[in-house]
Design a protein around this nucleic acid. Structure first.
Lengths: 225, 225
DNA sequence: TCAAAAGTGTTGTCCGTACACCCATGA
DNA sequence: TCATGGGTGTACGGACAACACTTTTGA
């Protein structure tokens, strides 16, 4: 029977998306040491024995951004033996959606592990370490696919938002313009929005009606045999 | 900084589907030893350091069923710390689709590890070991979802098949009846079938035209940024 | 000639898309 | 009063769903 001597290491890597300056952006860390020194990477870390994979992703996100209650989704597991130099590291990739204005970065640059932490446009990625370009692209594809039959765009917006803001979020993720009337018709018909009795102020334009996401909608994925 | 002493183990588990006797069935092995002695489980095994995850799944399938060139798809990675008693085993779950008539089982019952190997209807599963019920249900959901926008049903049929056989496969997986005329119209319009100049024989009914799957169709998932 | 499965079209409904103008506000 | 973004309806085309009868064959 086949026996191993060395072992695998297992990490969780999280592709953190946000919308900033009207662009879909990804949070990347610049590595301060080899391998791939100075290259950018998606944040990640080892999975502890006591936690499950979702918890590991949640913990990493909290350690590095101070954020809790973030939308997280497992994407895929990457396990090529050569993806990591000199050891076998299998990584479970997640993506997270956050509202960028809420972010307080807590990355520890002093430790000489990280040189920098920055948002990068998904369309202007720097050279990435390991197989992280593949992971980011995979995450981006999954995000777009999910958007079609799930209501996740709300995770990138404040609690209360206008339909125009929601449309902008969709357009930013899908990277194409949408028709205003059709978009509104669709969103209203989905029954996932709560129309509030509030309007935007402080704009020099006509105030816009505010909406909230309806948590009790029918767009949650069910799971029956 | 956080340090681990013990390590994780990583396995690949494969939910093997086939259509047999007009039912969607799953291949299960009956465990010959603790934990979960006598309970049924989906086949799996440890990932070697030298192989990637797809290769590990492929190897396991070959070791146990003698089959190569099987349709395999990664589903999800399960890593609850309590899913496996007394050790931390993270498993990357796959599903496979095979033509049951081609199967030669090679499971090693002599080793006292496995008591039995059998096909089970997805609707009449026995009690399963570990979290394998969850994995099987997840795999089944993914199979059905995939069927909607991918042509994977062919993987369960012989090279040449009739439209009725194809429809039966869809009905079996989706667990509902479909309209014959609508189904044919749809399949023809998808441009994924090659109409052959052959017909079934040896039936005491009207011969049916045979078709093949068109490998060069547009239903393969692409992957662009 | 009969039983059994193969094969074939039309119609209505729903959904997505295309498209242009008036409204409310603050400056 | 004007500039700016907010807000609204209709008409077309394509996809899906419902529905029943004729054809071919071997026994």
């Amino acid at each position: 029977m086949y026996q191993e001597t060395k072992t695998h290491e297992i990490t969780v890597d999280v592709v953190i998306f946000t919308i900033k300056n009207g662009e879909l952006q990804v949070l990347l860390v610049q590595r301060g040491k080899e391998p791939y020194k100075n290259k950018w990477a998606i944040p990640g870390g080892f999975v502890r024995l006591s936690e499950n994979l979702d918890e590991a992703a949640k913990r990493l996100l909290y350690e590095k951004s101070n954020l809790k209650d973030v939308y997280l989704e497992q994407i895929y597991t990457f396990g090529d033996p050569l993806r990591y130099p000199n050891s076998r590291v299998i990584t479970v990739a997640y993506f997270a959606l956050i509202r960028s204005e809420t972010l307080i970065l807590k990355f520890d640059k002093a430790a000489d592990v990280l040189k920098d932490v920055k948002w990068h446009s998904i369309y202007k990625l720097p050279e990435l370490a390991f197989d992280h370009e593949k992971i980011v692209k995979y995450a981006y594809k999954k995000l777009r696919d999910d958007l079609e039959y799930s209501a996740i765009a709300f995770q990138l917006l404040p609690k209360k938002f206008t339909l125009t803001e929601l449309q902008k979020a969709y357009e930013t993720i899908l990277h194409k313009t949408l028709d205003k009337r059709n978009f509104r018709k669709k969103m209203i018909s989905l029954d996932i929005l709560i129309e509030l009795d509030e309007y935007t102020k402080n704009s020099s334009k006509r105030p816009a009606k505010l909406y909230m996401f309806n948590e009790n909608n029918s767009m949650h994925k069910d799971f029956e045999l």
